[in-house]
Computed example of a mutant assay.
Amino acid sequence: MGEFWPVPDVLVYLAGRWRVTRSVRDLASGAEGEFTGTTEFRTEETGGLLHHESGIFVWQGVPRPAERTLRFLPGPGGTADVRFADGRPFHDLDLTSGRHRAGHPCSADLYRGEFTVLDADHWRTVWQVRGPAKDLVLRTGYAREG
């Protein structure tokens, strides 16, 4: 896909508030959904960021509130160690080239993510989830607020 926007320090880049739009497609059934909301990355005492996402998820026409919390801990050389809210490891994140691929096993399913920084105020993720329980593609766009 063209050029990527290198990010020397992922925590500095992500800090702040972002508008979020996510499409979810179940490749097995063809069902589709969409999440719209906000993500805020707030500085914690650890030097990392608390990531809180909230909004509305519409699945097969049914809207419901949705939220999640992650922790982005400082890693070496401007990278981050991404963890679930309870501290379990999720994935690493290195955007020094403007692009990163990560994986995460979840039970028998495998999550494969690609992170791409488009410019100073826009980035995206694409997660492919495959396994016996899931066959999904999640595409998320982030646009900085303010």
Results as ranks from 00 to 15, higher is better:
V62E: 08
F115L: 04
A28F: 08
T140A: 11
E44T: 11
V7N: 04
P105L: 01
D26P: 00
D121A: 12
L95V: 08
R22A: 12
T140S: 14
R144M: 12
W59V: 06
P63Y: 06
D135E: 13
G61A: 10
T21G: 13
V117K: 04
P8Q: 09
W5E: 13
I56S: 07
T46G: 01
V24D: 02
T125L: 12
G146L: 05
R42D: 08
G103L: 01
R112N: 09
G75P: 06
I56W: 00
E45P: 10
R124L: 15
A102I: 02
R144W: 09
T69C: 09
D94H: 07
R124M: 13
T21E: 15
S29C: 03
G37L: 08
E67R: 14
V58G: 00
T38E: 13
Q128F: 06
V7C: 10
T79A: 10
A28M: 11
S54F: 11
V24A: 11
D81G: 00
A143G: 03
P76I: 00
G77V: 07
E145R: 01
D135K: 02
R112H: 06
E67N: 13
W18Y: 05
L110I: 15
V10Y: 05
F41S: 03
R83F: 07
T21R: 15
D109S: 05
F41R: 02
H104L: 01
E32G: 00
D26C: 08
E32M: 09
F41W: 07
T39S: 14
E114D: 01
F4V: 13
T43A: 14
T116I: 15
P63G: 01
Y13K: 06
T43S: 13
R42T: 06
R88M: 07
A133D: 09
F41K: 05
V12R: 15
W18C: 07
F90L: 09
S29Q: 04
E45R: 15
T36M: 13
D135P: 00
P74D: 12
G78V: 10
E32T: 08
F4Y: 12
F72E: 01
G30Q: 09
L138Y: 02
R71H: 09
S23M: 12
E44Y: 08
A108H: 12
R88S: 10
E53C: 15
D94V: 08
F35S: 07
S29P: 04
S29R: 10
L70P: 07
Y111A: 03
W59M: 11
P8T: 08
V7M: 12
A85E: 13
G61F: 14
P89E: 03
D9R: 10
H100S: 01
R139G: 07
A108W: 11
Q128L: 06
G48D: 09
V24I: 15
F84S: 01
V10P: 00
C106R: 02
G30H: 05
